[in-house]
């Protein structure tokens, strides 16, 4: 498939708006890594507990103080969203208290929590409380059918609990995402998992993330996807997206999407997920890490920490640093030097950069442009 002249022109205008957004870098969302602690020990975790000093975790007062400082210092006119990640957020016994306190500010009443769902399934009364404290969405991780999920996440019975948590989330009216990490041992199950989820959970989003060699997952792991397996994932998404997208205006439908694995090339962007993807780390997405360090998404290498809210004013860091996030020239090495897609992807997702700044893979390059 090739783009029409109209499509090419629209991509150019989109790119100009993206460059303007990078220049302006308005604060539009906060990613708060609430903790590195977790009740599971998944094989693929991108932000594992064993790599950090768990005692350095922010206190509830420090977290609330950070949000209050942001609301006071930043232009909040475009702010829209708080993402809470981990670790497992619900292992923080003070999580609800923190959400209660920060949601006193009207800017912080559109909050999502990404969870494995175990604690929610064990304590379903939490669903009633979360709604009071500005939580609007829940993402539940389900990484295959029962045996595969339980082996990957190393918890017998985990699938049943995560599945139940997702079902209850929909039942309680939360915008619910089923998040699936696609790997070499579950990709053949993904169509069945999609049908099961759509039929019995009815989530708003069925998201697939391609597995990354970060955190506990190694390059040479038997779980890593081959280029042909990446194509298999993309083909599944393209087929389901093409079948369903005309119904996506109806909020009761289940959308499919590829997460932020990377740019797919102009031929495919916008045809496998309901948006045109671009890495927004440090552009409009401020990250507060578990220990108060300032960066962006929690799966990005801690090499890319830009500041520390315990010793610095958050807005000063946001305004005066983050050069590596906003000027991508340093990324243009190797295959990127001659790649025709560079002008649109700017080197892809920052979580795909190793601490030495080299790129570990590119979906577009590794699959020969999905040829």
């Amino acid at each position: 498939m090739s783009l029409t002249a109209q499509d090419e022109e629209l991509f150019e205008r989109w790119r100009e708006r993206m460059e303007a957004l990078i220049r302006e870098h308005p604060l539009q969302l906060i990613s708060w890594e609430s903790t590195r602690r977790c009740n599971l020990r998944c094989l693929h975790c991108g932000s594992p507990a064993e790599d950090v000093d768990l005692d350095a975790e922010l206190t509830a007062d420090e977290v609330v103080g950070a949000f209050e400082q942001i609301a006071a210092d930043f232009d909040m006119s475009q702010f829209r969203h708080v993402n809470v990640t981990g670790g497992e957020p619900f292992v923080r016994r003070d999580l609800l208290d923190i959400l209660r306190r920060i949601s006193r500010n009207p800017h912080f009443r559109n909050t999502d929590i990404q969870t494995n769902g175990i604690i929610l399934a064990d304590h379903p009364e939490l669903f009633d409380e979360l709604d009071r404290y500005g939580v609007t969405g829940l993402g539940i991780s389900i990484d295959g059918l029962e045996a595969t999920h339980d082996a990957f996440r190393r918890i017998p019975g985990g699938f049943a609990k995560s599945f139940e948590a997702a079902r209850l989330s929909v039942e309680h009216g939360y915008v619910t995402t089923v998040s699936v990490v696609a790997h070499a041992k579950n990709i053949d199950e993904i169509p069945a998992l999609f049908e099961l989820s759509r039929r019995e959970i009815r989530p708003r989003v069925f998201r697939i993330m391609t597995i990354d060699p970060i955190g506990r997952m190694d390059f040479d792991s038997e779980y890593m996807l081959s280029p042909d397996q990446v194509r298999q994932v993309i083909d599944f998404l393209k087929t389901e997206y093409g079948r369903g997208c005309a119904t996506y205006a109806d909020q009761s439908t289940t959308m499919v999407e590829l997460g932020c694995g990377g740019w797919l090339g102009r031929d495919l962007e916008g045809l496998v997920r309901p948006f045109i993807w671009h890495c927004i780390a440090g552009i409009n997405n401020l990250g507060i890490l578990y220990d108060g360090k300032l960066a962006s998404c929690s799966n990005i290498s801690r090499e890319f920490i830009e500041g520390d809210l315990r010793t610095e004013r958050i807005k000063d860091v946001w305004q005066n640093r983050y050069e590596r996030y906003r000027d991508s020239d340093w990324k243009r090495t190797g295959p990127c030097v001659t790649c025709g897609e560079w002008a649109y992807c700017y080197g892809g997702p920052l979580h795909g950069r190793l601490p030495d700044h080299t790129d570990f893979r590119c979906l577009w390059n590794d699959t020969d442009g999905f040829a």
């Binding site: 109209q6 499509d7 957004l21 996506y248 916008g270 045109i276 552009i283």
Partner: peptide, 29 residues
């Protein structure tokens, strides 16, 4: 409302990284 047409609407959305009004506009008839 083909996927290709929905993409053209996405590409014209003011905020390039926007993603109910969006869904109505991009995916509606």
């Amino acid at each position: 409302t083909s996927a290709e047409e929905c993409r053209r609407r996405m590409l014209q959305w003011p905020n390039p990284v926007e993603y109910t009004e969006y869904f109505r506009t991009v995916f509606g008839k």
